[in-house]
């Protein structure tokens, strides 16, 4: 419950954040909503000599929609995302996912950027960002760069972000047509036993395009290219669902924990993916 002491920094611009990160290296960490970092600090699983609070950095709270392109600032909270009518209009899967994350209090504080940057495979946004083929936008001492969400996650808590970089926003094209985020969990606020993000489009009576990503079924989120491909050209019937599940099962690598043994998680992953595809198809 009692975190170790730290030096607190509350800069007002990104240059100062990066200067602090450059100066203190591994001894410094940025904090967004604090709802993953503070719990880890309270358990002394993270000791951060220099804590950099991002709350006063301008621009990080912006939700920008330009035509089909959506950009979410890193400090946009789950609560703001849920209540943003224009965002829900162009990308309703964001709201559907966010409502399955944590609880009301956590959603007032927890941010999109923190969820995406954290690197815990339990987080829901990383799989969603892979499903949407989002770009993750970073700022660092050498300027800005973007990494595809599908290339961003390397291992549990290991991402493509360097220690002196800050995740400033995520961008993606508005997912048109069918969508679903389906999550199996033990209770409110739990990380997924298995979850699936699905977007697809329909042309005539068949699937024209599909993207599928799975949450908490490996040490990273899993974008299953094969699962999406298995649906394309089909009428999304039982055989197509079965083929997509088979492909997905070839890509995940769950581990046993309190949520169940590996065989159970693989079973649940199949059930959840079928439900998600069916719902996305009905909406397409």
């Amino acid at each position: 419950m009692i975190p170790a002491a730290f030096e607190y920094h509350r800069p007002t611009n990104m240059d100062d954040v990066i200067a602090l990160l450059t100066k203190h290296g591994d001894d410094a960490r940025v904090m967004a909503g604090g709802h993953s970092l503070i719990p880890m600090m309270k358990l002394r699983m993270a000791e951060i000599p220099h804590l950099i609070d991002l709350q006063d950095i301008g621009g990080l709270q912006d939700i920008t929609i330009h035509g089909q392109r959506v950009t979410l600032g890193a400090m946009v909270t789950q609560h703001e995302l849920i209540n943003h009518a224009a965002l829900t209009e162009v990308a309703p899967i964001l709201r559907e996912t966010a409502l399955q994350i944590a609880d009301p209090q956590v959603r007032y504080m927890g941010t999109v950027g923190g969820n995406v940057a954290n690197g815990d495979p339990g987080n829901d946004m990383p799989g969603l960002m892979q499903c949407l083929d989002a770009q993750i936008n970073l700022a660092g001492p050498n300027g800005a760069r973007s990494v595809a969400a599908r290339d961003y996650y390397e291992a549990a808590y290991m991402t493509a972000r360097e220690d002196d970089e800050v995740l400033v926003s995520v961008s993606f094209d508005s997912p048109k047509s069918g969508y679903a985020y389906e999550k199996q969990k033990r209770k409110i606020g739990d990380y997924a036993t298995a979850a699936a993000a699905v977007t697809l489009t329909k042309d005539g009576g068949t699937v024209a395009s599909a993207s599928i990503a799975m949450t908490n079924l490996s040490d990273v989120p899993v974008w299953s290219e094969g699962a999406g491909a298995a649906l394309i050209g089909t009428r999304c019937d039982a055989d197509a669902l079965k083929a997509a599940v088979e492909a997905m099962l070839g890509d995940i690598d769950p581990t046993e924990d309190n949520r169940g043994p590996v065989a159970f998680k693989r079973h649940v992953a199949g059930v959840i993916l079928k439900r998600a595809i069916t719902r996305a198809w009905d909406r397409a």
């Binding site: 419950m1 975190p3 607190y8 604090g34 709802h35 503070i38 719990p39 309270k42 804590l51 609560h79 009301p104 209090q105 956590v106 007032y108 504080m109």
Partner: peptide, 9 residues
């Protein structure tokens, strides 16, 4: 905002 004050410095 409704905030859990145990999770804020």
């Amino acid at each position: 905002k409704s905030v859990k004050s145990c999770t804020m410095f």
